[in-house]
């Protein structure tokens, strides 16, 4: 199934946890992008009917894209005034004539101007309207990522700001770290109290040892 495929990496991928967080974030991004690709947005969609026949929900999808010209901020789907009744009838007539959704919308744009559409068209300069939120969201993701990284670096930076004078101390420092359960088996020659190894290679922690950096 399409969806479970989508979600599978989140659950089964045997990768590092931070990567999984990124994966889930990217899923959210993916959703944003795919949603933009959907023409009908959140509204009910039905499969393509044969020429000249149309479904009511298809017509309603179009109604919801057209503003009522005389009432503030309402679509013809909502507005209960004469002109919106007539415009709804026009939509259905055109659908019955075999016109496509885009043709019908173009017809109304020609008559009333671009602001008859309930959302900016995804073309030309108006693409900005759609891309700015995606850009903003992406910038937000990056910002949060950077904030988390810089915040998690602060304290170790204080420690590593003074370089270890005596290289002979390193094994002992590693031993201390291991006792604090910060490393898994001390496989590298790098001093394992540096940030990188902490941030990315987080070993599993047992429930019991909660107090190692406890404030209290």
């Amino acid at each position: 199934m399409k969806l479970s495929n989508l979600l599978a990496p989140l659950v089964y991928t045997p990768c590092k946890l931070s990567l999984r967080v990124l994966l889930s974030l990217s899923l959210v991004t993916l959703l944003t992008v795919t949603s933009l690709a959907q023409v009908n947005g959140l509204h009910a969609q039905t499969p393509e009917p044969p020429e000249g026949s149309y479904s009511e929900s298809q017509a309603q999808g179009i109604d919801r894209m057209i503003m009522c010209p005389v009432c503030p901020a309402e679509t013809i789907d909502q507005a209960q005034v004469e002109i919106s009744f007539q415009m709804r009838a026009v939509v259905r007539e055109m659908l019955a004539d075999g016109k496509e959704r885009d043709e019908i919308l173009a017809f109304f744009v020609e008559r009333y101007g671009k602001d008859i559409l309930a959302a900016p068209p995804k073309t030309g300069a108006n693409l900005v309207a759609w891309l700015a939120p995606v850009g903003g969201f992406g910038a937000g993701l990056v910002a949060v990522f950077l904030i988390i990284r810089s915040m998690s670096r602060q304290r170790p930076a204080l420690v590593t700001a003074q370089p270890v004078q005596d290289a002979g101390l390193i094994p002992y420092l590693e031993l201390v770290d291991r006792h604090l359960d910060l490393t898994r088996g001390g496989t590298s020659n790098q001093p394992s109290y540096s940030v990188e190894s902490r941030g990315t290679d987080v070993p599993e922690q047992s429930e019991g040892q909660t107090g190692k950096e406890g404030k209290g």
């Binding site: 947005g41 503003m67 671009k114 959302a119 108006n126 309207a129 939120p133 995606v134 969201f137």
Partner: peptide, 27 residues
């Protein structure tokens, strides 16, 4: 903005918000 920069009247209503905010809300 569109009126000021493009001199174009544009409406932003429900379809826009549904499509853009929907996925964010799911997140």
């Amino acid at each position: 903005l569109s009126r000021l920069t493009n001199d174009e009247e544009i409406t932003v209503a429900r379809p826009f918000y549904d499509q853009v905010n929907g996925p964010l809300m799911l997140g």
